[in-house]
Write a protein that binds this DNA or RNA. Structure first.
Lengths: 210, 210
DNA sequence: CAGTGAATGGAGCGATCGCTACAGAGACGC
DNA sequence: GCGTCTCTGTAGCGATCGCTCCATTCACTG
């Protein structure tokens, strides 16, 4: 009576099932938030039973943390790196424009994990989910690499005079990106190219204002 | 055995109980999101039974929609209005600075409904909660009044040449505010006064760039 | 072809979910 | 006092929650 509809219920590769679950969970969490992500929904969308979910992930909290870790890994590999080629002699504004406009182009298919992370950041829970802490740490790493990128453009004098500048600029870039993501979530009212110019203008002003 | 601990279980004023429930729900939703807001938590924090919750509100969805409506009402009355005194002869930048810096000062005690609304916007649910639609409509009204404020500064020529400018600027102000709110949710890395100057600079550039 | 371990299918645990039913308590008009 | 209406207290409905248990299946090893 083997009701197997597939040729045979052969165990898929470890990674295949794991990723199926992660993807399903990511979609659901992006739709319905942390609490709205139920194991039952995950099993239905992934096609794998609850026992498999708990085979791969300790508990629901850990599952969502892994959703963010995995999503970030995928995403970062497709993003322009905030790293400056030493031979690059273009001025800051131009380099910034280059990175941002590439970054912004990937916005329409904003990865789920970013939206999930933003939701988690907005929540001020009594007990912090592991997922939230992980997203915070990740975000901080990104801020650091952006700050380092800015610093590479500053001469010794500027670094000494305004030691916080690079970090401030990194935070502005992040905040602006958050705002753009948000606007984009609602409608496409904000033109991404215009956004890039706005950020470039802010940075130029901040750097030269001294 | 009347277990009444209060002098007498007299029915409170309609509005008092309603607001107790709304406030409790707002706190919980800001902590745990839409799905994380359970009737049981609301009854515990408000001190009123589930039957009272359902006496005042049709269902959970309607309750949260009312949380946003009520929160917005309270908040908007404490905010600087985007209305221009006809006798006001100050330049745009100065007027903008005045409104924004007042607005930004209320940021530390960001009202819960704003965070709840943002969470709802991030969620892309199959069935939209009433609460989300209501927040969207509210946000749109605010955008309109900001756009009208900008328009009041434009002469006929500018209005004709760039009919979308006011609305674009309004969207930029909103997006920037979202970003600031976000940054502030994480830590106080972004200086609100600096933020005001950034927005003013963007607007000035956009208006004069033509 | 028996033995092993990774992964699945399915049943089901106690707790909680959103929500309802209904009996009463208190304020009010008469 | 007596009914009426508003709101509260309590119990509990069926459904679903996160999670566990365990037998079974499959690919692989020797």
């Amino acid at each position: 009576m083997s009701g197997a509809r597939t040729p045979g219920t052969r165990p898929a590769d470890r990674e295949v099932s794991r990723v199926r679950i992660l993807r399903a969970a990511a979609e659901i969490a992006a739709e319905s938030g942390y609490e709205g992500t139920t194991i039952s929904k995950v099993t239905k969308r992934s096609g794998l039973p609850a026992s498999s979910v708990y085979w791969f992930f300790r508990d629901k909290d850990h599952l969502i943390a892994e959703v963010i870790r995995h999503g970030f890994e995928q995403w970062i590999s497709s993003q322009p790196r905030w790293e400056r080629d030493p031979r690059d002699e273009r001025p800051l504004a131009e380099g910034l424009r280059a990175i941002l406009s590439r970054s912004v182009r990937s916005l329409p298919q904003t990865p789920d994990f970013l939206r999930i992370g933003q939701m988690l950041l907005l929540e001020a829970r009594e007990v912090e989910p592991e997922a939230r802490q992980y997203f915070l740490a990740t975000r901080d790493e990104v801020a650091s690499s952006i700050a380092a990128w800015f610093t590479s453009y500053f001469d010794a004098g500027l670094r000494a005079r305004r030691p916080e500048l690079a970090r401030d600029l990194a935070h502005i870039v992040l905040a602006a990106t958050d705002g753009l993501l948000f606007a984009h979530q609602i409608d496409d009212a904000l033109d991404p190219d215009e956004f890039v110019e706005v950020v470039v203008a802010i940075v130029e002003q901040a750097v030269t204002s001294d």
